[in-house]
Design a protein around this nucleic acid. Sequence first.
DNA 1: CGCCAACTTGATGGCTGTCAAGTCAGGTGG
DNA 2: CCACCTGACTTGACAGCCATCAAGTTGGCG
Lengths: 254, 254
Amino acid sequence: MQTATITRLSPRQSPATMQPASGKHETNCTSCNLRELCLPKQIVDSDMARVEQLVFARRRLKRGDFLFKAGDEFNSLYAIRSGFLKTTVLNADGREQVTGFQMGGELLGLDGIGGGRYNGNAVALEDSEVCVLPFALIEELGREIPAIQRNLHSVLSREIVRDHGVMMLLGSMSAEERLAAFLLNLSRRFTARGYSASDFHLRMTREEIGSYLGLKLETVSRLFSRFHADGLIEVQQKHVRILDIPGLEALRRN
Amino acid sequence: MQTATITRLSPRQSPATMQPASGKHETNCTSCNLRELCLPKQIVDSDMARVEQLVFARRRLKRGDFLFKAGDEFNSLYAIRSGFLKTTVLNADGREQVTGFQMGGELLGLDGIGGGRYNGNAVALEDSEVCVLPFALIEELGREIPAIQRNLHSVLSREIVRDHGVMMLLGSMSAEERLAAFLLNLSRRFTARGYSASDFHLRMTREEIGSYLGLKLETVSRLFSRFHADGLIEVQQKHVRILDIPGLEALRRN
DNA sequence: CGCCAACTTGATGGCTGTCAAGTCAGGTGG
DNA sequence: CCACCTGACTTGACAGCCATCAAGTTGGCG
């Protein structure tokens, strides 16, 4: 399950001379409905052509496929066009910790910039498609277009802020608070992508939720049942409907 | 305790025209003994003069002083010249989570780049001195000197990797494993700065260690006592001597 | 010298983990 | 088309780790 379809958009040449993608099936940032999530608002039209050069290729993943593995050589960041992924890190003794769940418009691979190799795994939780963004090109364009440079720095910094939020979650919140925060976070991100804020399909297992939240799968399952009994949510396997967002918000803060 | 001495190194002009620092008491990256921690090896001499323009000022902090607070306007990163700091984030209901402890050569303020405001607090745990690096200058120089650009990206990415390590710690390790990993991490970082790997003074309280590790202060205290009883460390208040590094490494992995 | 924050240590309890048994749902093959 | 199979999930019983509450001790600092 590790082979994945790669659609090359332009011949691999020196990064400095890559041609923009063209053709009906090919990536087009200008018309991408995730544009506002990927790209800074300040990008002017005259720069868009250059921005689209960044998208070297697309890559399709089936559920279970690895986008990259810990230790793989780092060359590119990935922008999610569609689908749902998880990222994990591995312990010396083999334990795995889920570090995040990513959806459309979010960037993957930031952990590879510093060390030349990806630090963790990225795995598709459903069939997905990503844009491949060679990092050398990003840096080159960043030097020429300040809005691109600024955007990269913002993305990196916001990932740090997100991680600090997870530390807060893991370090000082109860199991109940963690799951409430998790559901509200998913809700907010689905909303930003035009999906229902209250009705969604979990792409990850109870075990993966538990790993992310520092809990065991049984605890997650029990909490879902409790939230259901308390009238906060409806839950049936992977389908969740939030009935009482203020109620969850109150839990998150107590 | 929020006022802090600021030593201005050069008159505040347009960032692009700032003059390099000079004078016997003034910052000099070339001769700074933390240079190898702050700066990429690839910096050539001809670029060093420009790099030193980055250091707009130094700032002295007394123990307890805030370097910045959550919500403060973001303008600069800070490089620690000497001393020891902690960073924290705050909950909606006032709980505080320690997100890290920083020492000489490490960069602070990365969490402010994305939002225009610092996301958390930075507090000096002992009298400290930092170099003030206006971020607009860093970005400007990054556009002109690829080694600087690369270095900034590496620093940001490595912070993400570090955060993922903390998530692993908090999400899937026992109290004992967490404290062992914490002590070994401190040991490694002191070693890199020329201090003893096995004999050091903790600048933070049991409560701050506990917050960082997701434990209560009593648990931290009990673990210190247990490690002592097991012959792994000697501990007397804030003075710690590691007696058995392999023993701690074995704990970290079990 | 005295005060107070920081620390240690003990007793107890509760939250969450562990172990176990059973249910559910979706996919596969006969 | 249905039965089976397997991974995912739920629920119960129990245990253990760590939190909580409490009482004292230490040591740094004014």
